[in-house]
Design a protein around this nucleic acid. Structure first.
Lengths: 215, 215
DNA sequence: CCAAAAGTGTTTGTACTACACCCATGA
DNA sequence: TCATGGGTGTAGTACAAACACTTTTGG
């Protein structure tokens, strides 16, 4: 590689994270409002340019911390985004991650040196985002669905007490399918990842539902 | 992003591909011998630096064509590699792909402007490679196994006639497990992706085996 | 006592696993 | 004729899907 070949100049890497949570049974993603050009005033996924002295995932975590205050997330690689003009400043390759957090355990910073606002948006009500972030988010949602079906990634979203109808509704809204009450319960119990408590919580029905917690 | 902040300077992207094939029932990967520094004389996966005016996968395909002559491959994203010193020249983020080709349909270039040799290596006999390519290849092999189990990616490796014992042996050698003759046959037939022909081929046994082909 | 959601078990089908015998050929 | 690998069918098991009635509460 000839380092000064103009073909190789002015490249950079974006690290972009789709951070999901669940609030009142609704799946939401963290967006921040940009306070700088380009895309000043636009909502965007949390991310930014990778430093040349940090590892990729570390860069993603740093951006998340800087722009939202959230720390200690497990990030999963989703995809790479390489359209040549996806950034107006220079050639930036985007590397996208997804993570999930418990909304009760984080306090997001509404305003930082680089952001004017931050908020959780239901994934069905996403505005036009900066850059190609709509495309990146759509892709992350697909990956999230696969992760939910293959793993217990939602575990970290339900650290306290929850009812099975509530959990079922979350799965249904994310996966876009209807689940059977009895089979859903059976599956979670045979997987041995939840346990009943003595609490009862009213979710939607008149009859209170038993509260469960993850083991 | 402040474009001239030194934190963002001198970054580049490597696109690196693990190209697999099957020869006489053995799974092999394409390696090229480097004719330039760094890692002069070392074997390496096919890849190189991404141009700033091409999309990522296009860059991977260009590198494959330049260094091996192979064209028209389906590439699957495997992973990103971000260790800070993975390239001695400057900060290079590696993006790795995998593809499979039919060895009878390609003619690899043994020598190009940038390579001194090219060859297919059984994945059990991989030398020390340039850069972090051993790590990248190990990761690609894991992805290949998952792809084989989830999809019919091997289809493009068996375009002509093959016998079921032969196909079974390939699966076994890649996946590192033993398969049952009858169940293996049943699975492929119920998936409706292969069909018998009138040909018979002797594979290993004394009794000729029926030749199949993919639909 | 009625509406509305929550709790519970059984049955069915499907997909994978395990397993044993006969067949065709070359030596 | 015998050794070697190739071809075939069946029974058991585990997992997912379908399905109906009873229970608890608020109004």
């Amino acid at each position: 590689m000839e380092k000064n070949n103009p073909k190789y100049l002015n490249q950079g890497i974006h690290v972009i994270s789709s951070i999901f949570t669940i609030e009142k049974g609704i799946i939401k993603v963290l967006l921040i409002k940009r306070s700088n050009e380009p895309y000043y005033g636009k909502w965007a996924l949390v991310g930014g340019a990778l430093y040349n002295d940090e590892e990729i995932k570390d860069g993603a975590l740093r951006e998340i911390k800087e722009k939202s205050g959230i720390e200690n997330i497990d990030l999963n690689l989703c995809n790479v985004f390489g359209k040549i003009n996806r950034s107006p400043i220079m050639r930036m390759v985007g590397i996208s991650y997804l993570g999930v957090v418990d909304i009760d355990k984080v306090n997001i910073l509404r305003k930082t040196r680089k952001t004017d606002n931050a908020n959780w948006f239901p994934i069905t009500e996403i505005p036009n985002l900066a850059y190609d972030h709509n495309e990146i988010l759509d892709d992350a949602i697909i990956h999230l669905k696969e992760l939910i079906m293959r793993t217990n990634i939602l575990k970290s979203l339900f650290p306290n007490y929850f009812t099975l109808p509530e959990l079922k509704k979350v799965y249904e809204s994310i996966l876009g399918i209807n689940l059977d009450r009895r089979n859903f319960r059976k599956k979670l119990l045979t997987q041995n990842i939840i346990e009943p408590t003595t609490k009862q919580i009213k979710f939607e029905g008149k009859k209170p539902a038993i509260a469960y917690k993850f083991k």
